[in-house]
């Protein structure tokens, strides 16, 4: 890691004040924890994880809606990460229903084609990286016994909320490399804060941190790209076009956050035959959290997993209390795997 060492040395020389940078990507958190990056960074440089894990930010009301669909004898298809997320009454895994793990939405649509007598609902979570795959599948006109519960969220509105709110006192952001692979980074240019698009190798992340720290020192704010081998300013134009052909933004709650304007994606009226919420008249209710779980604070970047009284004791990957301990991209699960040595 010769390049990494050079970047790290420069970083140590440059960090002359307290700097807090947020990343908004579970894949970043996994890479940071796996490489042990926090333990080699300058003491005054803090990296916090924001709401970058789609499973974690899906509010309990939407998990409950998925469980309602199980009760109505639907076949549920979704990503493995979602199975253990606790709803008000158990999880998809413990529901006893016909719940199947699929690689992606196209496999869920195949189930619907193969089993025309079953009503198949895909629980569709994910940021802008994932939403275009759903759009492409909907545009391929899957059979009528197929629908989706859209739990999609958009990253920039959450960033706007975090910046407006200010509780995490952030000096800058590492932008999610694969969200930007699809979306580009033009829409982030409106935020007056240092931002760097970063990839997922330790060197990529260190380079992203270095570029962000340089901006903080200069008092500058712009979007820079430390992941040019994958990300361009305009992104994947075709994927973006398909996404907005099928979906429209709407105001929606995130776990740990209030309703954030225009931060969710729902199917446009012309595709409502594929909207499970309309098809089965499912109501998504707000559920107040009432355990000692602090996933909400972790997701807003104002608490670390190890700040939670439940962490590693009551709440473990086998017995998760909150969603951040369930998903492979949840900060708590990742810290449980890698970070116990770091206070």
């Amino acid at each position: 890691m010769a390049v990494g060492k050079e970047i790290l040395d420069t970083l140590h020389a440059l960090v002359d004040r307290d700097i807090t940078l947020m990343h908004i990507c579970g894949t970043h958190e996994a890479a940071i924890a796996r490489a042990g990056l926090r333990s080699v960074l300058p003491e005054r440089l803090k990296i916090v994880m924001g709401p970058g894990c789609p499973v974690c930010i899906t509010p309990q009301g939407e998990i409950d809606a998925a469980l309602d669909l199980v009760e109505r004898d639907c076949t549920i298809a979704t990503y493995g990460d979602l199975l253990r997320v606790p709803g008000t009454k158990g999880s998809l895994e413990s529901s006893g229903g016909d719940v199947r793990v699929v690689q992606g939405i196209h496999k869920a649509a195949e189930i619907a084609r193969r089993e025309p007598d079953r009503e198949v609902v895909f629980i569709s979570v994910g940021f802008e990286t994932t939403a275009p795959t759903v759009a492409a599948t909907i545009l391929s006109r899957p059979p009528e016994n197929f629908s989706i519960l859209s739990c999609h969220r958009l990253v920039p509105p959450a960033m706007a909320w975090l910046l407006g709110q200010g509780e995490a006192s952030l000096d800058g952001f590492l932008l999610p490399g694969h969200v930007c692979a699809v979306m580009g980074y033009e829409e982030y240019e409106r935020f007056p804060v240092p931002q760097v698009v970063a990839g997922f190798e330790p060197e990529d992340i260190l380079l992203g941190l270095l570029m962000a720290v340089q901006q903080v020192r200069e008092g500058a704010h712009r979007v820079e790209n430390a992941y040019p081998r994958v990300v361009t300013r305009e992104g994947n134009v075709k994927a973006k076009r398909l996404m907005y052909e099928v979906f429209e933004p709407y105001d929606v709650e995130w776990r740990g956050f209030p309703v954030i304007p225009a931060s969710g994606l729902r199917l446009k009226p012309e595709f409502e035959g594929y909207d499970a919420q309309k098809k089965y008249d499912i109501e998504i209710r707000h559920v107040d959290k009432h355990s000692a779980c602090i996933c909400d604070k972790v997701l807003r970047g104002i608490a670390r997993p190890s700040d939670c009284k439940l962490f590693g004791k009551v709440c473990t990957p086998r017995t998760p209390v909150g969603p951040c301990m369930v998903s492979h991209e949840g900060a708590c699960k990742i810290w449980h795997l890698y970070e116990s040595r770091r206070a």
Binding site: H106, P132, T133, T137, H178, V182, V230, N236, K238, L242
Partner: peptide, 29 residues
């Protein structure tokens, strides 16, 4: 994998996410 989101030729590289190519990459990359 599904190629709905990209226009590619044989021999090119793509970035694959949940069974879909989501972006085209150069071979070297």
């Amino acid at each position: 994998v599904r190629l709905d989101l990209v226009d590619v030729k044989v021999g090119e590289f793509v970035l694959v996410h949940v069974g879909f190519a989501i972006q085209r990459l150069s071979r070297e990359e």
